[in-house]
Amino acid sequence: MRAAYASAFDADNPLAALTVGDRPEPTHPQDDWVTVQVRASSLNHHDLWSLRGVGLAADQLPMILGCDAVGTDPDGNQVVIYPVVPTPGDPRGVSILSEHFPGTFAERVAVPRMNLLPLPDGLAATDAACLPTAWLTAWRMLTTKGRVDEGESVLVQGAGGGVATAAVALGVALGKRVYATSRDAAKRERITALGATALEPGARLPERVDVVIETVGAATFDHSLKSAAPMARIVVSGATAGHEPKVNLRRVFAMQLEILGTSMGTPQELAELLAFCAEHEVRPVVDRVVPFSRIEEAFARLHSGEVFGKVVVDHTA
């Protein structure tokens, strides 16, 4: 079957480590696994890190990439794949598809049957394929960890990427006042179009916020602390611009701030996200949809750093 996979590692030029070609059909490591015919998938920065050799070892190559997908199960049902699978031998006890088990950038992928959620009516496969990683992470940051229902305002640092842009769109859909920062003027215009107040990095906010969505790291963390209201929650799921920020602990205890780490979400949270998007007609921010025959272009677009939202791969085109 046709697939896109890591055939080598290249820390400086990850695109050079990407190969598109034939791979064997999926196998089932356990009886409760099934094969899904993939209809649509989406890229995450995790895929580029895999090509750089982060999280993979040489003896795991070649590894089919991709975490997110929508497809058709053996019974003909349209399903969304939850990408976290039980993984004996991994210190976490679980892994994401494309770490230990082949991923979703292929004609077919094997997953545990319990990882399949129904695709809601009215939600396109190319939209739903954006949700299981980046949008699920943003949903958990806002709801489970950030407890956004207890507050009225949100700051999203570094909007433009998948998680941050999802947090903007979801925060607005949840009825919150959303502020978002970006260095890029064009991206600030698009943030404004989503219903948020766009600001340059480090800009003073009109108010202190109840929840901060932090995926940038050291470059923005001091601003996150200064922008947080008393009892606010600063939720961290990434550190793209440095993982060792200086933290003013006096502000943390004086303002009674919570700094919370998170990653991904649960199958139940994904089900809640799917239902929310279907009921409230929330659709993911899609940078572009690329046919699988041109998946190399999708990787190049993500690697360019110019994306706003998700890059989606249509496996039916």
Rank of each mutant, 00 (worst) to 15 (best):
Cys277Glu: 01
Leu260Pro: 00
Ala241Ser: 08
Arg288Val: 11
Glu281Ile: 00
Ala228Trp: 09
Leu273Asp: 05
Gly261Glu: 01
Thr240Arg: 08
Val282Lys: 05
Thr240Ile: 15
Ala275Val: 03
Pro291Arg: 04
Pro284Lys: 14
Arg288Trp: 07
Ala300Val: 09
Glu279Lys: 14
Glu297Asn: 11
Val307Ile: 11
Phe299Leu: 07
Lys246Gly: 10
Pro267Ser: 13
Val235Ala: 11
Glu272Pro: 02
Cys277Val: 02
Val236Leu: 10
Leu257Phe: 04
Gly305Asn: 02
Thr240Gly: 09
Ile234Ala: 15
Val247Arg: 00
Pro230Met: 15
Ser237His: 14
Gly309Arg: 02
Ser304Phe: 09
Ser293Leu: 11
Ala275Arg: 10
Leu270Asp: 03
Gly261Asp: 01
Ile234Glu: 12
Asn248Phe: 01
Val247Lys: 00
Cys277Pro: 04
Ser304Asn: 07
Phe276His: 01
Val285Cys: 08
Ser304His: 09
Thr266Phe: 03
Leu249Trp: 15
Ala300Thr: 08
Asn248Ser: 03
Ala232Gln: 13
Glu296Leu: 07
Pro245Gly: 12
Asp287Ala: 08
Ile234His: 13
Asp287Asn: 12
Ala229Arg: 09
Val247Met: 04
Val286Cys: 08
Ala229Trp: 05
Glu258Pro: 00
Gly305Glu: 04
Ala271Met: 06
Gln256Leu: 01
Glu297Leu: 11
Phe308Ile: 13
Ala275Cys: 09
Gly238Ser: 01
Ser293His: 09
Val285Met: 08
Ala239Gly: 11
Glu296Arg: 10
Val286Lys: 14
Ala254Met: 03
Ser293Val: 12
Ala239Trp: 13
Val289Lys: 03
Ala232Met: 15
Arg283Val: 06
Phe292Asn: 02
Ala271Asn: 05
Glu272Ala: 02
Gly242His: 01
Ile259Asp: 04
Val290Ala: 07
Lys310Ala: 13
His243Cys: 14
Val235Phe: 10
Phe299Pro: 07
Ala271Glu: 06
Ala239Gln: 12
